[in-house]
């Protein structure tokens, strides 16, 4: 058992290292990885690596990690392997906040370009609070079915709002669309700095609830009889997950599939124990999105594909393959 866990962590970390190495080295300009420590030989390349590729890779990693761990937590919490951040309407809220910023061309003077991510995150939080209070209003014990249904209602409502803005927009159409398709390009270090604290806080919250997630898999009642303070833990997990999703969606747009595929793959490979599933999903989510970003900017170079297209393109077949294999093995 111990060996398997060690193998899980080390292989995940090795894949992450390889992903970072590839992400930094490969691009329109061919720059060796070693340039990172060598400013003298080629100052231009050094500059490209540190101010363009490195922040991009790290941002992709953080976004992927956030979506993946949030997905793992939501799935465990909802006892539904098909749930992900989107099910609760959180990412729709974030999207609406961001799209509204573009549509109304908001700009808060002091923070300037950060207006959009800030509004995105705010949208995520407001949506989360609305979904939670509405679900609580319907059913005080906040059953999972109620939560999912509330999330779906909010998602579709917020989705309509976004569609309305798209329909009414002229000049901003292209900008809105490209944001909606998702990207981690040209965001730079400030974005990394901006989401890093949220990612760390969110991760910590979820990680401290890893054992409670294990108990909650057997139903709220069983979890409570095991001594879990179900209601409080549920709130903590929802808040942590929303924070991570909100942060990720705000900086990179709607990138689907990561929150669904990564926990799934991790679970199939290394088991359902949340004590490891959360951290492993975090690491693997980072790797997956770094690779996806790399593909998105090299496959039809010099043009770039939206990263959301790549995650779906890679995610869906890989997911199907693993799913298929698992089912076959069971027979």
């Amino acid at each position: 058992m111990k060996k398997k866990i060690m193998l899980a962590y080390s292989s995940s970390l090795v894949i992450l290292m390889i992903s970072i190495w590839l992400g930094v080295s490969i691009g329109t300009a061919d720059v060796p990885f070693s340039t990172l420590w060598d400013q003298e030989t080629n100052p231009g390349a050094y500059n490209i690596l540190w101010s363009i590729r490195m922040p991009r890779v790290i941002l992709a990693g953080l976004v992927g990690a956030s979506l993946a761990i949030a997905g793992a937590a939501f799935q465990g919490l909802l006892k539904n392997p098909l749930a992900d951040p989107y099910t609760l309407g959180v990412s729709s809220g974030a999207s609406l906040g961001a799209v509204a910023t573009i549509f109304f061309t908001f700009s808060i003077p002091l923070i300037g370009t950060y207006t959009l991510p800030l509004f995105g995150m705010t949208g995520a939080f407001i949506t989360m609070i609305l979904v939670l209070s509405f679900a609580r209003l319907i059913d005080r014990s906040m059953k999972m079915e109620t939560l999912i249904l509330t999330g779906v209602i909010f998602s579709s409502f917020l989705g309509s709002c976004i569609s309305l803005m798209i329909a009414l927009s002229n000049n901003q159409l292209r900008e809105i669309m490209s944001w909606l398709l998702g990207s981690v390009s040209m965001r730079g270090w400030p974005y990394v700095q901006m989401i890093l604290p949220f990612v760390l806080i969110g991760f910590t919250i979820l990680w401290f609830n890893r054992r409670e997630l294990n108990a909650m898999m057997y139903g709220d009642e069983r979890a409570q009889s095991l001594g879990v303070n179900v209601k409080r833990r549920k709130y903590a997990l929802l808040a942590g997950g929303s924070m991570l999703t909100g942060a990720a969606v705000a900086v990179s747009g709607a990138i689907g599939f990561v929150g669904l595929v990564v926990p799934h793959m991790t679970r199939m490979l290394w088991g359902t124990d949340h004590r490891h599933l959360l951290t492993l999903s975090f690491i693997n989510g980072a790797s997956l999105l770094i690779i996806c970003d790399l593909v998105s900017r090299t496959i039809i170079s010099p043009a770039e594909l939206p990263i959301g297209v790549i995650t779906a393109f890679i995610g869906a077949p890989v997911f199907s393959y693993i799913f298929f294999k698992q089912r076959r093995a069971r027979r």
């Binding site: 465990g76 006892k79 539904n80 898999m217 879990v228």
Partner: peptide
């Protein structure tokens, strides 16, 4: 809750888990 869990266990009706532990 924890103290109670050491005193008493309730096993609700068998329900299928969606995850394979």
């Amino acid at each position: 809750p924890r103290q109670l869990a050491k005193k008493m266990t309730i096993l609700p009706q068998l329900s299928a888990s969606s995850f394979s532990n």
